[in-house]
Simulated assay, not measured.
Amino acid sequence: MARIRSIKPEFWSSEQVMECSPMARLLFIGLWNFCDDGGNHVASAKTVKAEIFPGDDIASTDVQRMLDELSSNSLIAFYTNGGKDYLHVTGWKKHQKIDRPTFKHPSFSNDHRRALDESSPPEGNGEEGNGEEGKEHSSLRSESSPQLALTGDPTAPADLKAKRADRIRQIAEDARTAYNAILAKPHGQLPACTLLNKSRIKTVEKALPTVRQLCQAMFGSEKVTPQFWEAYFETAAGDDFHNGNGPYTAPHGNWRPDFEYLLRETVIAKLADRAASEDAA
């Protein structure tokens, strides 16, 4: 059953929200009405489309892309419980005050979080963009691949967590150096990445499962090297949408890719697939 939910004024100026497209923001708000009182909902693009966009010509594949966009900005998290996929609105308890909550879905737990929570598979077997309810899939993305443990794992020894954090920061620094040298002004058209803050390092960390698979395919080792980032950003430089040349259409005419956008796991996978297709051709 749908619920009345509140929207706080600071929602509109949240950096996480502003990183999302307007339609993804609308979808995010719509999710609140249909989540249970724990902020949980089935992770079904078809169901979400029927609930939030019942009269709109929007495919469930488009809804899935918006869900992935929300996940990549840490606004929702995908998880599995009892063999069924769900999504959870992060920060739910902070923003929604519910006096007598009732729960329809299993509660969210990090133990049940998907290994690649930003890559929830859409329903169906059609191909992307053919009008069918398709599955956007990259051969370089596998949920069975090992994922670098998060630095916040409370069970890891302190020295091991420190080493992981240092390694991730070094990988992020290598990525920043290559991005600035190839795509950022004055070498390219995009804004330079001058600061490796927590958000940017986290973006790099989230991309590591796919990056490691690419490094294995390209260099025979999962070790992430500066050479990988140079090759990746050279690929982005050869694509007008990703190098800042556009054109970009309304309502995103002033939008340009930046360091964090290009480091999203979904963007890396798409560019890698495109490069592989061009090489095969």
Rank of each mutant, 00 (worst) to 15 (best):
P226E: 08
D36H: 08
R113I: 09
D239T: 13
Y86Q: 10
D111T: 07
E69S: 02
G129R: 01
S277N: 03
M18R: 14
C20R: 02
Q16N: 15
A158G: 01
S60Y: 01
T249W: 11
H137L: 13
H242M: 10
T177N: 00
G246F: 13
S109M: 10
G246S: 13
E234Y: 01
G131M: 06
D174S: 11
I182C: 00
T249V: 08
P257G: 00
R169K: 12
T90N: 11
S145P: 03
N125F: 11
C215K: 05
P54R: 02
I58K: 07
K49Q: 15
S44M: 03
I171R: 07
H95A: 04
Y232V: 02
G38F: 09
N33T: 10
G244F: 04
Y232S: 04
P186D: 13
R164F: 01
T266R: 15
P106L: 07
L196W: 04
Q147R: 15
A181R: 14
P146M: 12
F11R: 06
L214M: 14
G238K: 09
D159G: 00
P54A: 02
I58Q: 05
K84Y: 03
E118Y: 07
A45F: 05
L150E: 12
T210S: 13
A77M: 07
T194Q: 00
L70S: 11
A175G: 04
Y79I: 09
A231I: 05
V211P: 03
R141K: 10
S120I: 08
V267L: 03
K94W: 02
G30C: 00
G246Q: 12
E222Q: 13
F108N: 11
S199K: 06
G131Y: 05
L262K: 09
K49I: 15
R164T: 02
I29P: 04
E265Y: 03
G83A: 06
E265N: 12
I52L: 05
D240C: 04
S109E: 11
A276E: 08
D273K: 02
R3F: 10
Y261T: 14
R141V: 14
P186K: 14
A275L: 04
V211F: 03
I168F: 07
P101I: 07
A181L: 06
D56G: 00
Q16V: 09
K163M: 09
G220R: 08
K84P: 00
K104I: 15
N254G: 13
L148N: 06
